[in-house]
Design a protein around this nucleic acid. Structure first.
Lengths: 179, 179
DNA sequence: TACTGATAATCAGCATACTGATCAATATTG
DNA sequence: CAATATTGATCAGTATGCTGATTATCAGTA
């Protein structure tokens, strides 16, 4: 009887305490990302490629910054360095990257895209582009732009709150994308 | 020589083909969610609780819909049913839930929140609420509302594109939250 | 130069998320 | 009723993502 009474009270309290999922930024963020990933996979696979979102991001970043080390790569695309280890593993496995010990710093591994990687990247880039459009298909162009603007602003304010914040590439005359 | 030439051409093509990450909805979606999860974890842990975002969502949904089965739960919070198996495992492990075979349908498991679960939920709900605010701290109130509106709209249009779409709870006179 | 602290990469361990398969039980249909 | 299809839960396998630890190396300093 007493227990039931407590239960009733708590249930009534909870009813007012727990918000609807649709009012939770965190829930909406996860849902949107979930859809984004599903669209990415569907489009990329349908085009005959086997590449995950993070693999694409890493490949593109290395293409633009040849010889980059893994920590810098992680900062550039805002992934945790421990995650990048496995991602690079799989890209090397697929023959899209090579990973060599750096001569300047023997702790570091220099990442280079292979010809195969370049071919894959140029083939898949338009597909990825199309997938990005698909994610916003429910919005008008203006709304899509506004969504991106608001996301960028919220992300900028929260950048340091995650373990994997975005980091600008530090080095100056770093690299031309061409050998 | 020939190879170098191909490499140069591809690199030039790639430069125009690969978009900046900041223009990719998918990238921004992941970053925002990454920050959202980090904020959630930090706030919840700081308040002395050990609960992940999906565990919170599941606990709240079961509290509102006692006796729900796992597939319905998954649809209600838009998670994949195979993911929910593990999530429920861990909530049962922590003593926040009980999972019993249903008498109506012996394939199904009926989920009930425990008193311990109710206590945890009522304690952590305000913390989760605060975390949701924190995620939007870079935005004005109006911008925050607009972001949520645009996310809801984009998600509604893409709902069926993921393997785990949101599903309304079907049954009619389903349940009062009180025993 | 020996010492101290920082850094690049990796690893172990845990918790999502997904695809595709299996198993048991239920629903549907000829 | 029997055959078939569907459904709820789980499992195997793969890939993120994270925390915290370890190892090798580098950088700065007493």
């Amino acid at each position: 009887m007493l227990i039931i009474s407590i239960r009733v009270k708590l249930a009534l309290v909870l009813e007012n305490l727990v918000k609807d999922n649709d009012d939770m930024p965190g829930h909406l963020a996860r849902r949107f990302q979930q859809i984004a990933v599903a669209v990415f996979h569907a489009e990329v696979e349908q085009a005959g490629y086997d590449l995950t979102p993070v693999q694409y991001a890493a490949l593109a970043a290395i293409s633009t910054n040849p010889g980059i080390d893994q920590v810098t790569l992680a900062g550039l695309i805002a992934y945790d360095r421990t995650t990048i280890t496995g991602v690079v593993d799989r890209l090397v496995q697929k023959g899209l990257l090579v990973r060599n010990a750096s001569t300047r710093d023997r702790r570091a591994r220099e990442l280079q895209i292979t010809d195969e990687g370049r071919k894959t990247l140029s083939g898949v880039a338009p597909v990825v582009e199309a997938a990005q459009e698909l994610m916003l298909r429910g919005l008008t162009a203006a709304e899509g732009d506004e969504l991106l603007r608001l996301l960028r602003k919220a992300i900028a304010a929260g950048n340091e709150l995650s373990r994997a914040p975005l980091r600008e590439v530090p080095e100056a005359g770093k690299s031309k994308p061409v050998t």
